[in-house]
Protein backbone atom coordinates (compact mmCIF):
# COMPACT_ATOMS: atom_id res chain seq x y z
CA UNK A 1 0.00 0.00 0.00
CA UNK A 2 2.77 2.41 0.91
CA UNK A 3 4.62 1.52 -2.25
CA UNK A 4 1.98 3.36 -4.19
CA UNK A 5 2.83 6.60 -2.42
CA UNK A 6 6.55 6.11 -2.40
CA UNK A 7 6.88 5.42 -6.10
CA UNK A 8 8.51 8.28 -7.96
CA UNK A 9 6.81 9.47 -11.14
CA UNK A 10 8.75 8.71 -14.30
CA UNK A 11 8.80 12.42 -15.16
CA UNK A 12 10.71 13.30 -11.99
CA UNK A 13 13.13 10.45 -12.69
CA UNK A 14 13.59 11.98 -16.16
CA UNK A 15 14.27 15.40 -14.64
CA UNK A 16 16.91 14.05 -12.27
CA UNK A 17 18.65 12.01 -14.96
CA UNK A 18 18.60 14.89 -17.43
CA UNK A 19 19.97 17.36 -14.91
CA UNK A 20 22.98 15.15 -14.23
CA UNK A 21 23.56 14.17 -17.88
CA UNK A 22 23.41 17.75 -19.09
CA UNK A 23 25.70 19.01 -16.33
CA UNK A 24 28.36 16.51 -17.31
CA UNK A 25 27.84 17.24 -21.05
CA UNK A 26 28.34 20.94 -20.38
CA UNK A 27 31.50 20.35 -18.39
CA UNK A 28 32.99 18.40 -21.25
CA UNK A 29 32.07 20.80 -24.03
CA UNK A 30 32.23 24.17 -22.32
CA UNK A 31 36.01 24.15 -22.60
CA UNK A 32 36.06 23.59 -26.31
CA UNK A 33 34.96 26.94 -27.70
CA UNK A 34 37.93 29.03 -26.66
CA UNK A 35 40.37 26.30 -25.68
CA UNK A 36 42.27 26.07 -28.97
CA UNK A 37 42.65 29.82 -29.14
CA UNK A 38 43.79 30.04 -25.55
CA UNK A 39 46.35 27.28 -26.05
CA UNK A 40 47.71 29.04 -29.11
CA UNK A 41 48.09 32.28 -27.15
CA UNK A 42 49.84 30.57 -24.26
CA UNK A 43 52.23 28.93 -26.69
CA UNK A 44 52.89 32.29 -28.35
CA UNK A 45 53.71 33.94 -25.01
CA UNK A 46 56.01 31.19 -23.80
CA UNK A 47 57.69 30.92 -27.21
CA UNK A 48 58.98 34.46 -26.83
CA UNK A 49 61.30 33.09 -24.18
CA UNK A 50 61.73 29.40 -24.84
CA UNK A 51 60.67 26.54 -27.05
CA UNK A 52 57.29 24.94 -26.40
CA UNK A 53 56.33 21.45 -27.43
CA UNK A 54 52.76 21.27 -26.26
CA UNK A 55 50.25 22.88 -23.92
CA UNK A 56 47.65 20.88 -22.08
CA UNK A 57 44.77 22.43 -20.19
CA UNK A 58 42.56 20.55 -17.81
CA UNK A 59 39.61 21.74 -15.80
CA UNK A 60 39.45 20.34 -12.33
CA UNK A 61 36.51 20.66 -10.02
CA UNK A 62 36.99 20.00 -6.32
CA UNK A 63 33.85 20.75 -4.37
CA UNK A 64 33.06 24.42 -4.95
CA UNK A 65 36.44 25.26 -6.39
CA UNK A 66 37.15 25.10 -10.11
CA UNK A 67 40.75 25.20 -11.25
CA UNK A 68 42.47 25.13 -14.61
CA UNK A 69 45.69 23.25 -14.62
CA UNK A 70 47.90 24.37 -17.47
CA UNK A 71 50.71 22.08 -18.39
CA UNK A 72 53.37 23.59 -20.63
CA UNK A 73 55.76 21.04 -22.04
CA UNK A 74 59.04 22.61 -23.10
CA UNK A 75 61.22 21.61 -25.96
CA UNK A 76 64.48 19.96 -25.04
CA UNK A 77 67.36 22.39 -25.26
CA UNK A 78 69.98 21.05 -27.55
Amino acid sequence: MFGLFRKKSSSSIAKDRLTIAIMSDRENTENYAFMDEMKAEIIAVVKKYMGVRKVEVRKEVVGEIEALSIDVQLEKES
Partner: peptide, 18 residues
Protein backbone atom coordinates in the same frame (compact mmCIF):
# COMPACT_ATOMS: atom_id res chain seq x y z
CA UNK B 1 11.45 13.61 -23.77
CA UNK B 2 14.99 12.97 -22.48
CA UNK B 3 16.96 12.47 -25.69
CA UNK B 4 15.48 15.52 -27.39
CA UNK B 5 16.20 17.74 -24.38
CA UNK B 6 19.72 16.50 -23.85
CA UNK B 7 20.65 16.91 -27.51
CA UNK B 8 19.12 20.36 -27.64
CA UNK B 9 21.40 21.49 -24.83
CA UNK B 10 24.40 20.55 -26.95
CA UNK B 11 22.92 22.39 -29.94
CA UNK B 12 22.48 25.47 -27.73
CA UNK B 13 26.11 25.09 -26.64
CA UNK B 14 27.28 25.18 -30.26
CA UNK B 15 25.06 28.21 -30.90
CA UNK B 16 26.66 30.02 -27.98
CA UNK B 17 30.16 29.39 -29.26
CA UNK B 18 29.82 29.70 -33.04
Amino acid sequence: EVSSIRDSDRAIGILDSK
